[in-house]
Design a protein around this nucleic acid. Sequence first.
DNA 1: TTGTATGCGTTATCAA
DNA 2: TTGATAACGCATACAA
Lengths: 357, 357
Amino acid sequence: MKQDARKRITIDHVARRAGVSKTTVSRYLNGHYEALAEQTLKRIQEAIIALDYRPNRMASGLKRDRSHLIGIVVADITNPFSTAILRGAEDVCKRHGYSLMVCNTDNDPAKEREYIFMLQAQRIDGLIINTTGQNNEFLHQLAAEHTPVVLVDRKVPELGFDTVGVDNEQATAEAVHYLVEQGYERIAFFSEPIDGISSRMERLISFQNVLRRYGHCSVSDIYEIDLRSEKQLEKKLDAFVHSSQDQSRVLFAANGVILLQLILELRKKGLQIPEDISVLGFDDLDWAPVVGPGITTIAQPTYEIGVTAMERVLQRLEGDDTPARQISLSGQLIVRGSTPSSSKPDGNGSSATTKSI
Amino acid sequence: MKQDARKRITIDHVARRAGVSKTTVSRYLNGHYEALAEQTLKRIQEAIIALDYRPNRMASGLKRDRSHLIGIVVADITNPFSTAILRGAEDVCKRHGYSLMVCNTDNDPAKEREYIFMLQAQRIDGLIINTTGQNNEFLHQLAAEHTPVVLVDRKVPELGFDTVGVDNEQATAEAVHYLVEQGYERIAFFSEPIDGISSRMERLISFQNVLRRYGHCSVSDIYEIDLRSEKQLEKKLDAFVHSSQDQSRVLFAANGVILLQLILELRKKGLQIPEDISVLGFDDLDWAPVVGPGITTIAQPTYEIGVTAMERVLQRLEGDDTPARQISLSGQLIVRGSTPSSSKPDGNGSSATTKSI
DNA sequence: TTGTATGCGTTATCAA
DNA sequence: TTGATAACGCATACAA
């Protein structure tokens, strides 16, 4: 019935051709060279090359209960933040002979759940996840099956998993501190909905803490934007812009997505950066230097987050059963022209200063 | 020896609990409801839920020679062009119960080869690849094993595979046509190294063809830039800038990466867009509207490319064995302020006109 | 409508 | 140093 009668090459063919048993071939495949006569070793090598044999990972996976697959679940694969993490994870993965299964949830808990199920069905060996926080039960299940789970960007304390992300508290504090010192009278915090998302929460809290320490009036200039609804951003930005008429003011964008949306909206309104309003954003996107006078940003070590998360998974896989670790990598404030000192309304122009924090 | 003595739930457990044989359970799992008594069907359902059973895809995959895995190999996963494709492919994949294995090659043929091997080992059911063109032999092998392969963005005629991408000829022609009509005296083509990469080649050829038709002098203003070498872009941009002193001029960036690099370099030199030099880029990146006066771009239907490629794979998987198809999706010229009519050095400001091509 | 027996390609156990 | 044999979890031919 099948088109091609010639079956695929299996370990049996290799064994036959090398004149040994498949056990012996298997030993070779798994690097037990100590237990092989030089003669047989060579014969096996030759047979493998001659037949162009490729071991079947489904078979060995079934037997050993190891798929060599690592799942990675991100909120939005088109977000540069996610892809940088992906790339970091991928590089490490490859080096260790694992492959990545990538899943995109759009922050939808239902989609996330479906993906977790799929990944479980594939018997992934480990999982890196930027979770919505709504599927803790299923994540727990994974862990109970001894599948290491590492959370990136977002923490869920009750899960007790390893966690990797930027140090939001420090990075935000540094940036807000800087803005206050630049003399801004009004500093607005724009974020996607906080929900229970730890990274957003941490940034908000740090933002408010710093302002409170300074006795700054902007403690309540907080705007949560659901980008799925058309006009929210426009309205809320309007509200802030009008309420801060004639004051020196700056927008703190809590992530790269909201940063871009804010800049688009400012442009639509004909507001100039920084003449009419200043801007600072979390996430140092590649276009930040070329928009307006250059956008001041907080650079996240996204690639390293991916690398670190993946390394954590591999360590767990190798038997590390020390308590869960919360790993925070530090961010870096990159000052550009979008946040000039508010007394002297001009500034550094296109030069960029970086400041480790 | 193992930590957890409780083994995983298998089809056997379900069978036992439901009081049937595993054959029957298997029938249920595969949707052969016609062959099941309502009674047993219910009992099986209950057992599955009670035990929270998840079929093991490695096992079923081994038996059926189907992994439910689709490989996707891209040159650079941090490039928005790639991620948009990824997202399209992913959406379709998910709808059909497949999962994506994502691989990143950095345009390195060696890496590409390693990944192809890995994917073969995992017995992927299909492959979408943005290939370097240096591993045709191995891609052929895959096809010989009846694994559908679909090429995105780059064609390799001798491979005889399905192909999905933007219509480079049309899109480029439209854009160059537009630039000529805007009255530019010098139009420079900047691209990453053409090598044998079909999409780059097609854009170049179309570029030159249009200029020739017009008897335009810029037919040889061609610059290939290897971005891995530090100063190449700077030097070549310098060369063009100096050679076109006092002429109206525009940069045609053949993809999004080179576009951004050009803009960064212009800024470093203190050259204004469009006062000192105009710019047009292939790939409508999300920041294009907010850089300078807005960058005129060619929008590629990247998401649709991903969707279409994945659909092609699935069709092949379902037995479609019609001849290979070359699918070209049309691009869209999006006119913004970076390419004003060169006679009247001002223009549309921030408004954008789109023009289907 | 259901069950028995066999095999998918690999690894692990045990014996030689 | 090597090999025979029995799993791994599932699907299928065939029988009942």
